[in-house]
Design a protein around this nucleic acid. Structure first.
Lengths: 256, 256
DNA sequence: GGGCCATATTTCGTATCGTGAAATCGATTG
DNA sequence: CAATCGATTTCACGATACGAAATATGGCCC
C-alpha cells in the first residue's frame, strides 16, 4: 500500500492519497466546530503537525475550500457551490421538496428526506417548521440504520440474513437507553415495521425525539428513499401516519 | 516534471500543494457538467494524465467527496454536508430567508442574497417563485461586479479610483451586448446607481434577464450584503423598487 | 513600555509520496 | 474473432510534500 506497514495510517479507514485524506480530515474538523477554529485546535484534532496543517490549509484557502477569519479557519464559499451542485438524487429532491413542504405545513413538524448509503441513512433534504422547538437534522449528516425509523424499514425490506449481517458488522451500538442493541429483538421489530408499512423511532437515536418513517419506492418496487417526520416525542401524533403514507405514495407516483 | 518544464504552475492562479489544486480542478470539472462525467472527459478538461486523474478520483471517492455512477463520476454526498456547514454569513442567511420569502411571495419572482468576494458577487441564497419561467441562480455561483445590479452598487460605494482599478484589473469583459465594457461609462453609471439607492441590471449578464438590486448595510454603515430581484426583463416592475428597499431596510435593522 | 509566552509562519534538507509511461484488463463493435 | 477505445494497475523515478527547528507575530501581564 501507500504507507509502510509500521507507519501511522491514522484516522477513519484509509484513502490512497495522503494529502487528500488529510485535507478531508481538516475540512471535517472545521465542519465539526460551529465557530471558526484555530490552527492549534485543527492540528490537534487531526493529529497533523502544525506546519503540515498550515500548509494544507493555505492551499485549501487558495482553492476557496477554506476561508480565514483573523487567524481562524472556516469552510470556504466554494464548498457552498460544490454542495449545491451535488447531483446525486437531484431529481428526487426536486420532486420531493414541494410535497415535503406541504406535509410540514399540515403537521407543523420537521419532514426529512433520506437515502441509504452503506450502513447509514443520509439526510438529503428537510422541510423545517417555523417554531422555536423543532428537530433539525443537518443536510448530509448520517445516522446508523438501526436507530432511525426509515433505517429500520430499510433493514426490514432486505432478507433476515442481511439484517443479521448488519447487526454483526456494526455491533448495534446504542445511542439512548431505548436503542435496539439486541440482534434478535431487532430482527423481530424490523419485520413488524415492514408489515405495518411504517416505523416509529421512539427516542432510539436521541432522547426526546420521536419519528415516524415510511419508504418511497419506484415503479419497479425498488427503495429509492425514505420520508420521515421528526418531532419532540410528546408532540408526535398517530394521525400523521396516514398523511405521511399518502405523501410517500404521491412521491412514488411522480417518480414512477 | 509534473507539467512541462517551462510551465511550473498551471491553471487559474496557483496553489501551494499540487494534489489539492488538482483535486479542486477535478471537483470543479465535475460540478461544471450537469451529468456524471467519464474519466476521459475529466482528464481532458483538467489536462491531467488519465492515470493521475484516476488515482486522485479514487482517493476522493474514499473520502466521500466524489461518487461513482457506473464508470462515471459525480460529486459526493459529503460535499452536501460540508456545503451545508459553510458558516460564512450563516447568521445573515438565517435572518434574510424569511424576509426574502415574503418578498418573493409579494412579487412572484426570484429574490437573491449576495455578498461580495473579491471582484465578484457570490450568491448566498435565494427564494424561488413557483412558476415555470423564472430566473434561477445557483447558490455559491459567482458573477463579475460590473454586470450585476448589486455588484454595480458595490463598485459605486467605493472610491472612483477603486472602480477604475477594478476596470483595469478585469478589462470589463462583456457578456451580452448590453454589458458595460467602457471604463468611463461604468464610473458614471455606477455613481448614478448609488445616488438612486438601487440599481438595474438591464440584460447585462444574460440576455432577457432583468434585475433590481439594493445594498444591505450594518449599523456601522458597512456593506454586508446585496439583495436583488431577478426576472424575465419584460415582467420587471418599478413598483418592486420600494418593496425591495423596504426589505433591505428591515434586514439592516434586524442585523444592526 | 518592555519582556514573555503562546501561536502562527517560514525555512530547508530529506524521505516519501505522488507521478505518468506503459502494460493489462474489459467491454464494445465491425 | 480481431480491433479499438477506455478504464485500471504496475512500477521505477524524482519531484513533492514532510516535519523539525528557526523565526515572526501578537496578546498579555507586570
Amino acid at each position: 500500500m501507500a504507507q509502510s506497514p509500521s507507519k501511522s495510517q491514522s484516522e477513519s479507514g484509509s484513502g490512497s492519497i495522503q494529502v487528500i485524506d488529510r485535507l478531508t480530515a481538516l475540512l471535517e474538523a472545521i465542519a465539526r466546530n460551529r465557530d471558526p477554529v484555530s490552527l492549534k485546535v485543527l492540528s490537534a484534532e487531526t493529529e497533523l503537525h502544525p506546519s503540515t496543517a498550515f500548509r494544507i490549509l493555505a492551499s485549501a484557502i487558495e482553492n476557496g475550500l477554506v476561508a480565514r477569519e483573523g487567524s481562524n479557519y472556516r469552510l470556504g464559499i466554494r464548498l457552498l457551490q460544490l454542495g449545491s451542485r451535488v447531483a446525486s438524487h437531484q431529481d428526487l429532491r426536486r420532486e420531493a421538496r414541494p410535497l415535503m413542504e406541504t406535509l410540514r405545513d399540515q403537521i407543523g413538524e420537521t419532514v426529512n428526506l433520506t437515502v441509504r448509503q452503506g450502513d447509514e441513512v443520509v439526510y438529503l433534504d428537510r422541510a423545517l417548521p417555523e417554531r422555536m422547538m423543532r428537530v433539525e437534522q443537518r443536510i448530509g449528516s448520517r445516522a446508523p440504520l438501526h436507530v432511525t425509523a426509515v433505517g429500520k424499514l430499510m433493514l426490514g425490506e432486505g432478507s433476515e440474513a442481511d439484517c443479521r449481517a448488519y447487526a454483526q458488522r456494526t455491533g448495534l451500538p446504542g445511542y439512548t437507553r431505548y436503542s435496539l442493541t439486541d440482534e434478535e429483538q431487532l430482527v423481530q421489530h424490523v419485520s413488524g415495521c415492514v408489515r405495518a408499512g411504517f416505523a416509529y423511532d421512539d427516542e432510539e437515536a436521541e432522547t426526546g425525539v420521536g419519528c415516524i418513517g415510511v419508504l418511497v419506492h419506484d415503479d419497479a418496487g425498488q427503495i429509492v428513499a425514505g420520508l420521515s417526520i421528526s418531532a419532540p416525542i410528546e408532540r408526535r401524533r398517530d394521525e400523521w401516519i396516514e398523511l405521511l403514507k399518502a405523501t410517500a405514495q404521491e412521491l412514488s407516483t411522480q417518480l414512477g
